[in-house]
Simulated scan of single mutants.
Amino acid sequence: MSNIPAELKYVDSHEWLRLEADGSVTVGITAHAQELLGDIVFVELPKVGAVLAKEEQAGVVESVKAASDVYCPIAGEVLEVNAELEGAPDLANNEPYGDGWFFKIKPANAADLDGLMDAAAYAKEIGA
């Protein structure tokens, strides 16, 4: 069964979101997503400063099994990307909720987080 931290929000495209103290939101892929993908060998991240719409493609994850798009779960501006993933994409496998995060975004509307799934709803979504 996948690890689903209770303090995070989730979307059905298998990204997680964590609201930070400064109002920014950290985004990554869920443990469930990385389990489905298998060993991740390449990660393409968005550009810092990019303004992304909700559900817009923000990057790509390639594994030994498949390539998959990473979507921006809420609209906003990319503040930071996890450059460590470029040299160590396996962080997304080993620490999906820790050092394997993908990017940080400044939400266009912080209230957009309110409509996202909590851990219980995401667990139901994936049948966990």
Rank of each mutant, 00 (worst) to 15 (best):
D90T: 14
D12P: 10
K47M: 12
I126Q: 03
A50L: 08
N94H: 11
N109A: 15
L116R: 09
F102Y: 07
V81K: 01
K124R: 12
A110N: 12
Y10A: 02
A58G: 07
A88N: 15
V61E: 01
A110T: 09
P96F: 00
L113V: 10
M1R: 10
S63V: 09
N109Q: 14
V78L: 05
M117S: 06
A31Q: 11
E7C: 08
A108R: 05
V48T: 12
N94Y: 09
K54A: 14
A21R: 14
D90I: 12
L8T: 00
A33V: 06
E15L: 04
A123R: 06
S63P: 05
G59R: 07
G127K: 04
F42V: 12
V48I: 14
A121N: 11
V48M: 08
P73K: 01
A31T: 07
A21Q: 14
V60R: 10
S24A: 12
P73E: 08
N94W: 09
E20D: 15
C72E: 05
A120K: 05
P46E: 08
A21L: 06
E77C: 00
G100D: 03
E80G: 04
Q34T: 14
A33E: 05
T30H: 06
M1P: 15
V51E: 15
A88K: 14
L19R: 05
L79A: 02
G49Y: 02
A83D: 15
P5I: 06
A31M: 07
K54Q: 13
V61G: 02
V27Y: 01
Y71M: 04
E7I: 13
A120Q: 08
A119C: 10
A111T: 15
A58M: 04
E84G: 09
A83C: 08
L36E: 10
G59F: 05
Y97N: 10
W16S: 03
L79G: 03
Y122D: 08
D12K: 14
G87R: 05
A88D: 13
E15R: 02
